[in-house]
C-alpha cells in the first residue's frame, strides 16, 4: 500500500509548492503546513508500513522481534515539533511585515531588496551593498 501513499505524497508536494509560490503570504503559511506533513509522510513511507504493532519491547523481554520501524518514528517526532516552530515563526515574521508595511503581498515586501529602478531614485549608488547586509 506504500505506492498509493507515494501518489498522495506527490499531490501534497505539488499543492505545497503551488501555495509557496503565492503572492499572498498567508497562503505561503498554508503551503508550509502541508509541506511539513508531506515531509513527515515521506520519512514514514521510506521506513515502510510493514507492521501495525508499536515498537515497544514487551515487559520482561530483552529484544523486539518485528514491530513497526522505530528509526523513522524518532526522526519524525522531532520533525513534527520543528515544523510547528517553523510555521509559527513564519507567521510571526509575516505579521511583523504586515504591521510595518501594511501589505500581505510578497511582491510588495521589498524593503531589503528594492527594485533597481526604485533604488536609483531613492538612494545613492554606493550605499546599496551596505543596505543589503544590514537586513540580511
Amino acid at each position: 500500500m506504500e505506492p498509493v501513499f507515494a501518489l498522495a505524497f506527490g499531490v501534497m508536494v505539488a499543492v505545497a509548492a503551488y501555495l509557496l509560490m503565492s503572492r499572498n503570504v498567508l497562503r505561503i503559511v498554508l503551503g508550509l503546513l502541508v509541506l511539513g506533513n508531506a515531509a513527515n509522510l515521506s520519512i514514514f513511507l521510506a521506513g515502510r508500513l510493514d507492521s501495525r504493532i508499536p515498537p515497544l519491547v514487551p515487559a520482561g523481554e530483552t529484544m523486539l522481534v518485528g514491530g513497526a520501524n522505530p528509526l523513522p518514528q524518532a526522526l519524525i517526532l522531532t520533525a513534527i515539533v520543528i515544523s510547528f516552530a517553523l510555521v509559527a515563526f513564519t507567521v510571526v515574521l509575516f505579521e511583523s511585515a504586515h504591521r510595518r508595511l501594511g501589505t500581505l503581498d510578497a511582491e510588495a515586501m521589498r524593503e531589503a531588496e528594492p527594485r533597481p529602478a526604485e533604488k536609483s531614485v531613492t538612494e545613492p549608488r554606493r550605499s546599496a551593498p551596505a543596505k543589503v547586509t544590514e537586513h540580511a
Binding site: 508499536p54 515497544l56 515487559a59 517526532l77 522531532t78 513534527i80 515539533v81
Partner: peptide
Amino acid sequence: HNEPGGGFIGGL
C-alpha cells in the same frame, strides 16, 4: 522510556 510518551508529547 518504556511506554508511548516522552518529553515532546508531555511538553505539548
